[in-house]
Write a protein that binds this DNA or RNA. Sequence first.
DNA 1: TGACAATAGGTGTTGCAACACCTATTATAG
DNA 2: CTATAATAGGTGTTGCAACACCTATTGTCA
Lengths: 154, 154
Amino acid sequence: MSDLSSTSALDQRQKRLEEEVSLEILRTAAGLEHFLAEGLKAHGLTMTQYNVLRILRGAGSSGLCRNDVGARMIAPVPDATRLIDRLISAGYAQKDTNPDDRRYTTTRITKEGLNLLARLDEPILDMHRSQIGHLSSDELDQLATLLKAARNQP
Amino acid sequence: MSDLSSTSALDQRQKRLEEEVSLEILRTAAGLEHFLAEGLKAHGLTMTQYNVLRILRGAGSSGLCRNDVGARMIAPVPDATRLIDRLISAGYAQKDTNPDDRRYTTTRITKEGLNLLARLDEPILDMHRSQIGHLSSDELDQLATLLKAARNQP
DNA sequence: TGACAATAGGTGTTGCAACACCTATTATAG
DNA sequence: CTATAATAGGTGTTGCAACACCTATTGTCA
């Protein structure tokens, strides 16, 4: 029986390393998320809501249809409808049915939403800094590169 | 006004790098989590439940009290009670009140739970491999080191 | 044109997680 | 020994997310 079909000791070691790195990624992200969520809570926003607002701000005045919002999220969100509805209730977004194709509903960020994001920009940067600001520029660069490579599966 | 009180261009650039890395971490973790959750769902487990079972297996026959389980999780879980109760309902764990101090409830993994984990061990390793197995050993080592450094705040 | 596929959005239900609060048991101080 | 603090666990409620399914609108092809 060759090592192609069995699981060699070397391969086992490699697998454990892969698992360890996966767990490191999950742990680090969990810490970040917890910390950021805590900071956003003071402004009545969840991480998901904040990300949607960032996406809407990025989309500008032309807005986005709901599924496009879901597709651009960090984690694809199946239920963009009610997620956005909550932002609308809070006054941070608005929706309009597209008159050319009435299936589409364009969602835009409101002035209030923009104001809120503007107030949050610096605090958010400070939060990131407080979490990973002790890493050097080189380390940050390496980390970004490696993580991009990790997500870029062949 | 000195650069100590204002925000210099260089510092702004550094802050954006920090934010980018944070987002990379969150994105990568979200992808991993989504993929792992998908695989675990076939066995009726959530990521959180799987992690609890791993922790209980690691604790061995002496078991752990509920708050200790919560403390060892990737993300601290405030509601360990009902989380563990679900595992007990599924037959993967059991709880016993400690006779010496009746405030404590020791939770242990059952034979069924161990069997389930044993069945999952290889598939889980394969899942990790399919996600980040294209990275070299060196890259994995660097990633693990950098992530540990990231979480190790001064 | 008229049936039907395709696409975007909405809704009903369920389960889990977070928060706050409550109960039970033990330790401690007077 | 009793009152009180401290600790572990449990519970009630709320909100969000996931899944499946449904509706409305448009495109396509006989």
